[in-house]
Design a protein around this nucleic acid. Structure first.
Length: 628
DNA sequence: CTAGGGTTAG
């Protein structure tokens, strides 16, 4: 790149270029995205003394100003345009409007549009203004311009639609989106691939995945972008299994994916804990056939971390010459997920040192990492810095992390106090975190309060009823158990228990809470008793946990599923081998301490894989093997 | 003037 620039400047200074070749060079630079260089060239062009040829280069120079967000230079160019009488050139006009819009000077764009009579007859000018309003998130203004365009009879074309439709971003916008879709069909614009892709993405963003899917299967031809839009659409809506299905369909049709598709696939592998597919994709990427970029590396870090290979995730991270905030968030979240909060903390501090400005997402990662590792005060420290030091808004997700943090540490009153002092209305997640903490520390009174709040927000969430019922069982409050059971029956909620999986000799074994269905059940329970003895003997809980939390191996409700998975793994896998435990960590984040302790006691390595959306496979543990 | 992408607790 540097060499190309040197060549270019040599060329520019040493030859007596004609206007055309200057313009061509400028255009090429702008097209390559080398906007800075393009503007330097433009300046030299001006200095060459002849102002009139500059007119041809205005659109490219303006585009560069737009890309670099240089409104002052853009305005200078505008006056230059006026001086040279170029404001009757449609290309220049649209470039000016677009420049102002991209620089967030939308009112200047509007002024220009209103004051220039030529503008009001040209599709391209309307298009630029509509796209500009959309870009500046002034969707209703965009709609108004679109309506006026139709009133005055200016031709609506594909680009008009492409500028307007992305303004539909929230579910309620989809009604407008649907009406535009109808208009598009009536005008015959629906045969345009980019228009169809744009509509497809619109449905995804408005949360109408059904409509997106219908459109996808109705389309007579699909381009790579169509496939990608559908894959990311599923991925963003949490439909990870559908992503993998679509990816397989793509493969069977012989369509070669590109990095965009693979990012969506990897993200779904991460959510499913689908290691086999993930590794296959990673190998394909390494073969170099599909291209490689930053997005893909971040997706690989995330996939490896969530699929149990934290070491690999770390090495990809370490080898990245350029790390973005997302890279840091992924690796910090990875360590947090595996209960290695200390490393997460080190990484977070290192990130701050390198001058990266943290955002809300990375704070969620670090707070939850602290929570899982019992680093309560460390986490509280970060929380207090969020607003004061980094000027970040505290969201519900941060409050829920801190309630979880305090709650796990047994500081239930403080957790409750924090909820009461929140400037925003707490939601079900926040109350749910308190409820979970009450479960760990057996505070039935506070649990009742949290339970009553949480089911107001998520009455359909079976997990909370099960949790409360189990607490009553522990407290031998049979009346309480009955009350919860009645509520569940009234609401027609069926038990949908959490589960863990362990891989052994190529097969995946599934365990529910308190499971006794496995043929080796007796052996497994004996193994757990032995482990409990060993851990207690070594004073494991007290020594390991800086905040003195305790966690029992077996509770009154039934043995946690990951414990069964571990017991099974210890019984059935060879010495020195890693035991892979797959657990829905979002439902039960408690397993880390246990795994850490047992890992020490038996001197074996456990690899945890997070299968957040694994329950999509619950129809049969075997079906997941196809993906793994 | 113009269609697709990574990270976030319970």
């Amino acid at each position: 790149m540097k060499k190309a620039r040197q060549l270019c400047s040599l060329h520019c200074t040493n030859t007596t270029s004609t206007t055309n070749s200057w313009t061509t060079q400028l255009r090429d630079l702008a097209k390559q995205g080398d906007y800075h260089e393009a503007l330097l060239l433009y300046r030299r062009l001006l200095r060459s003394g002849d102002p009139s040829p500059a007119a041809f280069t205005f659109p490219f120079a303006l585009k560069s100003c737009a890309a670099l967000s240089l409104p002052l230079l853009g305005a200078q160019l505008h006056s230059h345009v006026v001086r040279t009488g170029s404001q009757s050139d449609p290309f220049v006009l649209t470039a000016l409007i677009s420049m102002y819009c991209k620089c967030r000077f939308i009112d200047s764009a509007r002024k220009l549009f209103d004051e220039n009579p030529l503008c009001r007859t040209l599709s391209v000018c309307y298009n630029a203004l509509i796209a500009g309003y959309t870009y500046n998130r002034r969707f209703s203004d965009a709609i108004n311009v679109f309506c006026r365009m139709r009133e005055v009879g200016v031709l609506v074309n594909d680009v008009t639609i492409l500028g307007l439709v992305p303004g539909c971003t929230v579910p309620k916008d989809r009604y407008f989106g649907i009406s535009v879709h109808g208009f598009v069909v009536r005008c015959g614009l629906d045969t345009d691939l980019s228009v169809a892709n744009c509509l497809l993405t619109m449905y995804v963003r408005c949360g109408s995945i059904e409509l997106a899917r219908n459109l996808f299967y109705d389309m007579p031809e699909r381009g790579l972008i169509t496939w990608n839009a559908m894959i990311s659409g599923y991925a963003q809506n949490g439909l990870a299994t559908q992503v993998l299905e679509l990816y397989h369909e793509m493969e069977s049709l012989g369509i070669c994916p590109d990095p965009v598709a693979l990012v969506g696939v990897l993200s779904s592998c991460a959510n499913l804990g689908a290691r086999k597919v993930g590794l296959k994709v990673e190998q394909q990427i390494e073969s170099g056939r599909f291209g490689y970029n930053l997005f893909l590396k971040n997706a690989l870090i995330n996939m490896n971390a969530r699929c149990g290979n934290l070491v690999r995730a770390r090495s990809i991270f370490d080898e990245m010459p350029e790390k973005t905030l997302v890279s840091w968030t992924a690796i910090i979240g990875g360590y947090g997920m595996h209960g290695q909060g200390e490393i997460a903390v080190e990484l977070f501090d290192e990130m701050i040192k390198t001058g990266i400005k943290p955002d809300g997402a990375v704070f969620v990662s670090i707070l939850s990492a602290c929570s899982h590792a019992g680093l309560t005060n460390k986490g509280l420290g970060y929380f207090s810095l969020m607003e004061s030091n980094y000027g970040l808004q505290l969201g519900l997700e941060h409050y829920s992390c801190v309630v979880d943090l305090l709650g796990r540490a047994g500081r239930l009153a403080e957790a409750h106090g924090l909820i009461e002092s929140m400037p925003v209305e707490p939601d079900g997640v926040v109350w749910g975190a308190l409820l979970g903490a009450c479960k760990i520390h057996r505070n039935v009174n506070l649990a009742e309060l949290a339970f009553n709040r949480v089911i107001k927000f998520e009455p359909w969430n079976i997990g909370f009823y099960v949790l409360m019922s189990n607490m009553y069982t522990e407290a031998k409050d049979m009346e309480g158990v009955r009350r919860v059971r009645v509520m569940m029956r009234e609401r027609k909620l069926k038990k949908d228990p959490g589960c863990s999986y362990v891989e052994c000799k190529g097969r995946t074994h599934l365990f529910m809470v308190g499971d006794r269905s496995h043929p080796q059940t007796e052996e497994m329970y004996r193994m757990l008793d032995r482990l409990e003895g060993l851990v207690k003997e070594l004073g494991g809980y007290e020594k390991t946990d800086p905040d003195g939390r305790t966690e029992e191996l077996v509770n009154g409700v039934g043995v946690h599923s990951e414990r069964l998975a571990i017991a099974f793994g210890l019984l059935n896998t060879g010495l020195g081998r890693e035991i892979l435990v797959i657990k829905n960590l979002r439902i039960c984040g408690d397993c880390h301490l246990f795994i850490k302790l047992v890992s020490k006691v038996v001197d074996r390595q456990f690899v945890i894989r997070d299968a957040t959306r694994f329950h999509h496979f619950k129809d049969g543990a075997c079906s997941c093997n196809e993906f793994w």
